[in-house]
């Protein structure tokens, strides 16, 4: 008897469309691992009602900003992927004609959440800590300079109200943290090459993020952004 091996996750969707007589398709129907993964993938493509939650819309906006920053391209006008067209009222809300208005509403919601809500509630930003209330969000910190050249590391970012310290974290391309640098209360950090705990390689893709802290707790974070290692003096 020939035993059909499990299907690699990436190929499951294509295998599910094979004729029922195909041994690989039959394997998927009987194997708990492959069946479970195929169902999970279908759920990934069709998020269901959860995708309509307010926190999802806010995250969607921030992810668009993140992609625009990371790729240096304008935030995409999102459309549902062809693999799973949406037909709900939510899709109508995302129709091309609605996008400018929707973008404005989302920006207003995010701004309102970050700026207005803590004041109305009489609570400082420290209440909006990661891992706290599901409704709370950590405000975004904006990095204005991130350069790693022969002169060393040069970082600058916008100050965050109430922050008493900033921490710079550098990650490898594989998202492993390779350095953590304390900037105290400054909004810039310059580290000469001799004081770097790692050896930058020209062309090496690195990522950097900055956390603003108050009494040791993170009160704002930047998204990770690319940090190019150059060989030219800065």
């Amino acid at each position: 008897m020939t035993v059909t091996p499990c299907i690699p996750l990436e190929e499951l969707a294509a295998v599910a469309e094979l004729p029922a007589s195909d041994p690989r398709r039959a394997h998927v129907a009987q194997c708990p691992r492959c069946g479970a993964l195929l169902d999970a993938y279908a759920r990934f493509l069709e998020p269901g009602a959860e995708a309509d939650a307010a926190h999802v819309a806010a995250a969607d906006t921030r992810l668009s900003e993140f992609l625009a920053r990371t790729l240096g391209a304008p935030a995409p006008a999102r459309a549902p992927a062809r693999t799973a067209p949406r037909t709900s009222w939510w899709a109508a809300l995302f129709a091309p004609a609605m996008r400018p208005a929707l973008g404005f509403v989302m920006a207003a919601i995010v701004l309102g959440g970050i700026v207005v809500w803590p004041r109305l509630a009489g609570r400082g930003p420290a209440d909006a800590l990661r891992g706290g209330s599901q409704r709370a969000t950590v405000p975004t910190l904006r990095i204005t300079d991130a350069t790693l050249g022969v002169a060393g590391l040069r970082m600058a970012w916008e100050s965050v109200a109430d922050a008493d310290a900033y921490e710079v974290r550098i990650y490898s391309d594989a998202l492993a943290e390779i350095a953590r640098l304390n900037a105290n209360g400054d909004t810039m950090l310059i580290v000469p090459p001799s004081e770097l705990s790692f050896r930058p390689v020209p062309g090496q893709p690195l990522l950097v993020r900055v956390d603003a802290r108050r009494h040791g707790e993170v009160i704002a974070s930047s998204p990770p952004i690319p940090l190019s290692v150059t060989t030219t003096p800065d």
Partner: peptide, 26 residues
């Protein structure tokens, strides 16, 4: 940007199912 933008919401929702925390999921 267009390609990843198509899937970013699904990726977020998937991550949120695991960690149940909007900021961590983001």
């Amino acid at each position: 940007s267009i390609l990843l933008g198509r899937y970013q919401r699904r990726v977020y929702v998937w991550c949120h199912r695991y960690v149940r925390n909007p900021e961590r999921a983001l």
